[in-house]
Design a protein around this nucleic acid. Structure first.
Lengths: 188, 188
DNA sequence: ACCGTAGCACTAACGGTTAGCCTTTTGAAA
DNA sequence: TTTCAAAAGGCTAACCGTTAGTGCTACGGT
């Protein structure tokens, strides 16, 4: 009954944070490919093995901030009022997420991601995982078939991906969501 | 332009084929992760560097057979009669591709792919490339916006991916294509 | 018959990642 | 308080995919 947050957990979180901060700083300074894992570990003053105890891969270091993405989408779906229509809700969330990527503080990171093939691939893979989580949440909240839910979930995530690359992201989201609405309307 | 098939090209193709065959055999025998690049090279009796002169990565060895996927989809779109409606054409192609994956001879390979995270990731990435090619072909053949074409292209590729995992692949393709038809109908 | 070069081999290395093993710190039971 | 198991971290050494550097050989065009 010492403290709700033991010293252990605090130290662990601090180490994790220090590694992530150091990594992101070095990546932005010198470029992702020009910085090795051993560089990050040395600069953060931890062993390479410690780094990998906190992060599953080099790419994961970059996406540390955006661990909420998945949680946010899923929560929006599960905690909605049952009367609220779902697709506009999703559109609203995607809108917010796209804007977040364009925010000043995160923009340089996203530029780096888009410029680095390894990071793009990693993100694509992440998106699929997110789509599956979203699909599960949708399936739990709706009478439609699991297949329809998975399809709509991928569609929504695709909207996010495509809008980020578009000249006018907001308009892109709206355009794609008109298609999603129509697709959704014909599901049984 | 003297010889349609010089000895050089034949030997090169033979080497490539031998590597691919050997790799696939070893992968199926012992499992993808249990076979190293050095194993494949030794068994195929070539140097590791030679192997990488023919294949860009270990994963590419597995997808050697399916290099036509992209070409086939794009050709179906570009070479259609201008009167033919496009979405049913796409549905027909996706149907054929899904069935091909379930064919007896290729089924074990696909089972291996589905069981191996590295290969799944690689395929996801491949699918996105295919979707982009398809989107380009669609944009050239249609008056719709580039964004709408990209969206529909991803949707079609997703249909392929989701149907392969479904209990009844044929029905899954049809169900998703009903959604695609609806989404397509609302594009300007 | 000759020469440029494509194809291939060999060695050595690089960079991400992991296994094996050891030390210190920490939370809590005895 | 003492004690102890587990967690966190460290060190070394390697594995594995991949690439650079270098050189040899056989093929194809002239």
């Amino acid at each position: 009954m010492t403290a709700p947050t033991g010293r252990r957990e605090r130290k662990k979180a601090a180490t994790r944070q220090k590694i992530a901060d150091t990594a992101l700083r070095l990546f932005l300074e010198r470029g992702y490919d020009a910085v090795g894992i051993r560089d990050v570990a040395a600069e953060a003053d931890v062993a390479v093995t410690t780094l990998f105890a906190h992060f599953a891969s080099k790419e994961a270091l970059v996406f540390e901030q955006d661990r909420d993405f998945e949680r946010r989408l899923v929560e929006a779906v599960t905690s909605r009022a049952s009367s609220e229509p779902l697709i506009p809700l999703l559109r609203h969330e995607i809108h917010a997420l796209v804007r977040h990527c364009a925010a000043d503080r995160t923009a340089p990171v996203w530029r780096m991601i888009e410029a680095t093939p390894a990071l793009r691939e990693y993100e694509e893979s992440m998106r699929l995982r997110h789509a599956e989580s979203l699909a599960t949440a949708l399936a739990a909240a709706l009478p439609q078939s699991a297949l329809a839910c998975r399809t709509i979930a991928r569609f929504a995530i695709d909207a996010y991906a495509l809008a980020r690359e578009a000249a006018d992201p907001d308009a892109a989201v709206d355009e794609i969501f008109r298609m999603i609405e129509a697709a959704w309307a014909v599901t049984g």
